[in-house]
Amino acid sequence: MNIFRLTGDLSHLAAIIILLLKIWKSRSCAGISGKSQVLFALVFTTRYLDLLTSFISLYNTTMKVIYIGCSYATVYLIYMKLKATYDGNHDTFRVEFLIVPVGGLAFLVNHDFSPLEILWTFSIYLESVAILPQLFMISKTGEAETITTHYLFFLGLYRALYLINWIWRFYFEGFFDMIAIVAGVVQTILYCDFFYLYVTKVLKGKKLSLPA
């Protein structure tokens, strides 16, 4: 465990909690892509099946349980409790265009052809693109609430910090996981455009809105 990995995990946790609290406090999930949230719930579920097979540390187990719990709570709020506020008309990204290729790739490129490992690989690939429905929704409506942009910022920051963590681990532990690294680079790149808007607009006190 190094400082980049820890701050990455905490940044991820911050993102998840910010989103959950935003929805809970405002009693509204307007502007939030339910599809992205379902994909993230699927990511955590398929990745953390090892909760049942191996114990790594109390920290590891606790974080996994929190991530899974929060992601399902978010999905529950969007599709059940606060369904009336869900902006389904703007959440039109076709997720099958992500799930099918990602599933195929997980079968073809993995560390080990075993069910648990294929599901882990699937979750890594899926996570790298799971935010696309949310970004698509923002590009469609042309704007995002400031709190939503904070959520996206911490979510992107988490993966960027993980990239530094992997460089660190490569140098100091000789550890590297090519699948995680390539997917992590792709995931981080997807946030670059958003990071630019976040720094140039949101941090200067303006609302994130795109030119029509």
Binding site: H12, I56, M63, K64, H111, D112, E117, D177, I179, A180
Partner: peptide
Amino acid sequence: WQRGIHHDEL
């Protein structure tokens, strides 16, 4: 590549 199978990250 084998090392990746022990997944200790989140």
